[in-house]
Amino acid sequence: MSIKPSVTVAVSGLNNIDSPGPGIPVIRALKESNFFNVRIIGLSYETLEPGLYMRDLVDKSYQLPLPSAGIAVLLDRLHYIHQQENIQVIIPNFDSELYNFIKIADQLKSEMGILTVLPTLNQFESRQKSVLNDFGKKNDVKVPFSKTIFSVNELLTIEEEFNYPLVIKGKYYDAAVVANFSQASHYFHKISNQWGLPIVVQEFVTGTEVNVTAIGDGEGNCIGAVPMRKLYITDKGKAWAGVSLDDAQLIAITNQIISKSKWKGGCELEFIRSNDGYYLLEMNPRFPAWVYLAVACGQNHPEALLKMALGYPVKPFQRYDTGKLFIRYSYDQIVDMQQFETISTKGEL
């Protein structure tokens, strides 16, 4: 017989859609913890985020104000939620909300006793797509040459520095490989309309895309890392199926990045394996939506993060299973109008 500590954890990223957020996989990992008995408070931005209605995984949910509303509004809302639920740990899972959560992390702890495991603001900013060249130099990892632009006219001036095809990337999300100025211009407008400026223009590196889900303790230790290759990609470029890899070099590069940057928290490293080695394309500052594959391979990264938050000792994982596949599927939840009405009108469910 064992007794597990009970913990109340608030998790965002409940948008388990075709371009899924990491919330539900993180919750699934926490619910399967051998160490904790976890009560989940879902944090959502939209009333149709599927995770809101997954009552076997999410015990109670609350709407949050959009990140653009600012820190004061977010803190007010979290004060209210905390009064109702006595949250011990928050795991934010959206790139776009992380800036606010990093800014209020100290206040969350001092005013409400809510713990987080987040990168510092410097770490968060250092891996932004717009400064990837510097990140590569600092962490001794190859990155594709990239440049930040603010107007479509700059596409003409950078043609001396780039050869087509090249990649047009949004500040937070979205990317397109373009073969000429006309396509580049089209995607500049399309992506900037949705995600804002600046746009990042990046050298196109040919090879195989491989990704790593990892977690650092902020002291330079990589607590866990599992590499994956996408086997099936949706039209949004998201993995619908993938397989864990046995790649010692990739793990070594990941360890090096986590160690040199002293990264704290979960992250996803996106690489291209080309003929002349690995190129880091992006470092996402939170767990990826496929993080549950790491759990299935023997490394429960969300549980490790929860232990770190609560001050339990966490030793680096020593191994993981290779050749494990994840295959997503879609599933129609049936929801009573009353539930939709409740979250729409009261902001909680």
């Binding site: 491989v210 290759r229 086997l231 890899l245 046995d246 790649d247 290779t322």
Partner: peptide
């Protein structure tokens, strides 16, 4: 050495995922 080969003729390369 890390290539997995089953009796059925299924081969998995854990380095590349192929």
């Amino acid at each position: 050495s890390n290539v997995a080969i089953s009796d059925s003729g299924f081969i998995f390369n854990p380095l590349t995922g192929d």
